[in-house]
Amino acid sequence: MHMPKPIIDVSHLSKIYKTGDIEVKALSDVSIQIQEGEFVAIMGSSGSGKSTLMHILGALDKPTSGTYFLDGHNVESLSDDDLADIRNRKIGFVFQAFNLLARTSAIDNVKLPMEYAEISDSVQEKKATEVLERVGLSDRMDHTPNKLSGGQQQRVAIARALVMEPAIILADEPTGNIASTQAEEVMAIFQELNKQGHTIVMITHEEDIADHAKRVIHLFDGVIRSDKSNKKQKIARLKS
């Protein structure tokens, strides 16, 4: 039987924050493997360490101990600039607060990662248009974020996460700042992307959002409490 190589391979990960004399263990001995094409939800209440895990998976932060292989690269050994490169090419971020550049059109926001990858203007234009069409925003490409609803802004952010064709899409509470009907749309887009083969790792504290994933990992006090596949995956529908 063919055993696929994991895209995310984390083993014995610990993260300790030090504030003065007080040590806070945010993660302890966490090991996770995520294969290509999975849709994983990482759940936990606030303080469970899920954000810390997300930041380490996103190569935004480094663990205190343990190893992290992302698509075959040992993240620990990389310099700041190499990490920037990894984030640029391998990871697509979707943030709770969207984090779009203000006063910048949707399409220019989507182009931003490609600017840092030094991709030619014509290719940028083509790819950005393409991904914005995929998230259903072809008619709003020139709108600035303040002219878009929360759900639309998050779709721009998803388009931006997609545009570099990353190995994984990391979503941190992607529905946390938007209305529930629009949250449904975002989930529908994620499921569609997952169907097309994208690997998605999503952090949430909402049960019914996590239900849209194929696998759910529960974190509690920095330790993995459960890790099982979701038998009853909820299917979100795109309202035309």
Binding site: G58, L60, A84, R87, R89, F93, N99, Y116
Partner: peptide, 16 residues
């Protein structure tokens, strides 16, 4: 600062 953080998350190097 947050914009800088975002740009870095999206792949901006120190030089950029």
């Amino acid at each position: 600062t947050r914009e800088i953080g975002l740009r870095k998350a999206l792949g901006a190097k120190k030089k950029s």
